[in-house]
Write a protein that binds this DNA or RNA. Structure first.
Length: 301
DNA sequence: AACCAGGACACAA
DNA sequence: TTGTGTCATGGT
């Protein structure tokens, strides 16, 4: 990593990093693709990311004293092979790793992650992106960005969401999630839940605290635990993951309780179960046709 | 045109 | 504890 204040540009030496897979895998919702990479907003700064032969190159709109905030976000210090090595060696898992080489987990800001996944419930990723975009355009603070940037606003602060009316939030297409989002924003703004301190808590305590928030159940809580706080065993079970687990790991078993699924996942997939989950999720969405019992090659042109 | 989406919640039995 | 209906909205 070479900081350069004069020209806002930095390089991160890292191998096995697929930006396309990582930024389109349903863990974040604000990045947009352009000709030579991806642009988005991290910690209130506009950023453009692209691949190089030896790693990633970042450009920002304004100068930066350091780049640690971006290294943290992209987790460039993680050696992916050390993570993947801990996965079980079954056929579906190996296939998912082969299909999604370079897929990574980011380390997001807790509030944006929490708010985003409250909006995610029972929505497709394309629609979640739309809701988040509306919220940012409507309530986010402007940030320096190049002309023509897809979005030049920070993710709205909890205070700003809390002061919005439910009607305004519904106008952002949030639907029935609007009330949840507003009330959770209020509790965060009022300090009723210390989002910063949760990072130091034990996983179970952190999950319980998150699940007391309206609109936050087990699945959304696990997303925040995994994507924002980095608890490596948090294992979000959504409809895709449930489909994968039932088809590939529990064929011809009709009844399968959610708790049973979670217990199996955390034990079977090991110390980086959350990472394994992201591989299965991405592989299922991109390489598993409905009804199929495995991950296939993408259709050839 | 039905069906479904990175669910949560109140309520019934 | 386990099952069912409801809540918006737009993609496929």
């Amino acid at each position: 990593m070479v900081p350069d204040v004069a020209t806002p540009r930095a390089e991160f030496a890292v191998t096995d990093y697929d930006l396309d897979a990582t930024l389109s895998s349903g863990q974040v919702f604000r990045w947009s693709r352009d000709a030579d990479g991806w642009s988005g907003i991290v910690a209130g700064r506009w950023v453009h990311m692209a691949r190089t032969a030896t790693g990633l190159v970042a450009r920002t709109a304004g100068p930066n004293a350091d780049w640690q905030w971006l290294a943290d976000y992209f987790q460039t210090g993680v050696r992916l092979e050390d993570v993947v090595r801990t996965f079980p060696g079954d056929e579906p898992m190996r296939a998912a790793v082969a299909r999604c080489a370079g897929l990574r987990l980011l380390r997001q800001e807790p509030w944006e992650c929490l708010a985003s996944f409250i909006c995610s419930s029972s929505k497709q990723i394309a629609q979640i992106r739309q809701i988040i975009h509306h919220l940012c355009e409507r309530f986010g603070e402007p940030v320096p960005a190049p002309a023509g940037a897809h979005c030049a606003r920070a993710f709205p602060a909890p205070e700003r969401i809390a002061s919005a009316s439910e009607r305004e939030l519904r106008a952002c297409k949030a639907g029935f999630r609007a009330a949840y989002l507003r009330e959770t924003a209020r509790r965060v703004a009022d300090g009723e839940i210390p989002l910063e301190r949760i990072a130091d808590w034990e996983e179970g305590r952190a999950r319980e605290a998150l699940m007391r928030l309206p609109g936050v159940g087990r699945k959304v809580a696990d997303c925040v635990l995994l994507f924002a706080y980095g608890f490596p065993r948090a294992f979000p079970v959504d409809v895709w993951i449930e489909r994968v687990l039932r088809r590939l790991y529990f064929p011809r078993r009709r009844k399968l309780q959610p708790a049973e699924l979670i217990r199996f996942s955390r034990e079977y997939f090991g110390p980086h179960a959350g990472y394994a989950q992201q591989y299965l999720f991405h592989a299922a969405r991109n390489f598993m046709p409905s009804g199929a019992d495995g991950f296939r090659r993408p259709a050839r042109p």
